[in-house]
Design a protein around this nucleic acid. Structure first.
Lengths: 363, 363
DNA sequence: CTGAAAGCGCTTACAG
DNA sequence: CTGAAAGCGCTTACAG
């Protein structure tokens, strides 16, 4: 799917008729265009009766303010661009919903693009969006993004907030809103430790993704704090989809001793693991415990319901938009890096029913 | 949450420095602005060497095409506005994802807004979006929208496609992409009938919403075709959320004889009903069967997995965008009303295990 | 094949 | 308090 950045074709239409413009309003009520403009922008300079006449004419004529023209002249914009991975992913959909809500409330408009995790597509989408001169950009970078290339494309044109995935070296002046991956994974691991488990794997994700690295670090933190040496064979990689996780289930049990619990990279992986276990005659939450990450809607209705780490993506969206709006408002105080809290949500998948069996070499 | 349509404040910034514009490119390589413009738009009129020089200068200078200015002059736009209910709803998130993909492929950009089912918010959001002069609009109307008011606001300015909810009387020139609610509900009902059930309720939704009316009609169609008279007490209304559905479960069993099966308004309602049944000691898919509508992601992982009607929201998004792009391209052939197919997805919730018990007065 | 001029719809000093 | 003039960045006839 190639993006056409072709400028010749957007509308092969017969040219539109001239629209109602300030000129028409001015003529319609015998004032100058300047006066109409002042009325539009609620200037206190205009005489009340003049204002009323102009407003009546505006109502009558079906006039629509042309923001493009105003932005061109004033060199400002009330659009904010948001680029995410994919709206089919509820995490990003919720995030986008939060961004949208905060922007609408502030009178801004949202320009949306998606990358589908492809740096090429990301480049094309951003190139297309910046032509619309957004006042700011919120970017959840595709995996394998090149910070320097993004920097070159976006320049210092506008405030940029990077979400979710670090973009090291892209520039000190870009904001970064991070999820607390490390702490979240630590919470999940500690929760399993507290229930007496010691043979705990880390399942899913790709080592070269920053969020996976961070979550693994949190897992290791918790194990080390408990005096447990991580078992390398218990770090199982897999593409973070349900299907792949189900397929990779066997890898968890390839070596002896096998783990009896797993901190999963995310909820999709955890749900896949649960069905992979079922296929091998084991039951999640009964003879194997696990935790997820994200708290997607399915987590609470799956069987068993999934213990997971909630990151409140909608709240992150609100937060991201507000942070950026504050920058637009001239705020130079707020630190560039914000880490959003992660919260443990305990459900049945991590709790053995009735007679908890302590597995592994519990001390 | 009031929308500010205030025009004075979007950017309280110090004014931006002048950007690199065609004038600079022209000066930078000793040609006129006209020539630069022709190069930008890939005109074949330009001499190959001149073109090369101009392109080199464009690359060097970090020039970014200003679509706002071009659109102003040409009276065109390559933005399309999309207004949905709420991105937190996976149905709309998927739909928006499809719209986005089709638009991006065609070189268009997406302006997104959401109504949260409020006609007031919808009005404000649309008023804000049209100031950005979108080439077309895709609108999934909020419940209780007033067609005439929308018509007044939007005028005949641009092609409009209404999705999902009929907007009668808004204008013959607007496209309408409908889901086949009636046929979908009929399929679900027939599926239950084929398994021998006759005591089938219709559960959830509000009578005054068009999609509920249509789905009820499909339910009635199937019953009547099977020679069964609908029992009025088996039409149970409830707000289509999981929680409300769980609360209303009792209403299904208020009268004797009680139904032993239900066609639910949507998946959320069906899942709520399943937990409401559990709370009363009945098990969905074991001693009560049910179907949903939408095929949300949870449907396949719930317990039991939910038989439902798939409407493929992402495909609807692609379809909506393509339809509108065709209109922009001058297509006058395509009929104004399109009905998207609904497909039955059979899972365990509608199938009694092992020994199907025929309930009600099976003939 | 290239350039000078006008204009899209708005706003902003600057006069009055 | 109001108006005439210039200009944001682009494109489009029209000459040459």
């Amino acid at each position: 799917m190639r993006l056409r950045l072709d400028r010749s074709k957007p509308v092969p239409h017969p040219v539109a008729p001239r629209r109602v413009a300030v000129t028409d309003i001015a003529a319609g009520c015998g004032v100058s265009r300047s006066t109409v403009s002042l009325v539009l922008r609620d200037s206190p300079l205009v005489n009340a009766q003049t204002r009323a006449r102009v407003q009546a004419e505006i109502g009558r004529s079906g006039y629509v303010y042309h923001r493009g023209a105003a932005s061109l002249r004033r060199r400002t914009s009330n659009a904010v661009a948001l680029v995410v991975n994919d709206l089919s992913n509820p995490f990003f959909a919720e995030f986008a919903g939060g961004v949208d809500a905060a922007l609408a409330e502030a009178g801004y408009v949202l320009l949306l693009g998606s990358t589908g995790e492809s740096p090429e597509r990301q480049h094309a989408v951003l190139a297309s969006l910046i032509e619309h001169d957004p006042a700011a950009l919120i970017l959840s970078p595709a995996e394998h993004s090149e910070p320097a290339r993004l920097r070159r494309l976006l320049g210092g044109r506008m405030p940029v907030l990077v979400f979710n995935r670090a973009l090291d070296g892209a520039g000190e002046d870009w904001d970064f809103l991070a999820l607390d991956n490390r702490h979240g994974a630590r919470l999940a691991t500690e929760h399993l430790l507290q229930q007496g488990h010691r043979a705990i794997a880390f399942f899913g994700g790709h080592r070269d993704s920053s969020s996976c690295t961070e979550r693994r670090a949190g897992y290791r933190d918790a194990l080390e704090a408990a005096g447990i040496a991580p078992v390398p064979a218990w770090l199982v990689e897999c593409t973070p989809t349900r299907l792949e996780a189900a397929r990779q289930t066997g890898a968890l049990f390839a070596r002896d001793p096998a783990p009896a619990a797993a901190v999963c990279y995310n909820d999709a992986v955890a749900l896949g693991l649960a069905s992979g276990l079922a296929a091998r005659g084991r039951r999640a939450g009964v003879d194997f415990v696990l935790t997820g990450f994200d708290d997607i809607p399915e987590a609470s209705v799956s069987t068993p319901p999934l213990t997971t780490i909630a990151v409140a993506p909608r709240e992150r969206g609100l937060q991201a938009a507000r942070l950026l709006l504050a920058r637009l408002g001239g705020d130079a105080e707020t630190p560039r890096r914000t880490v959003a809290p992660a919260r443990l949500v305990v459900r049945a998948s991590s709790q053995l029913p009735q007679h908890p069996i302590l597995l592994g070499d519990a001390s």
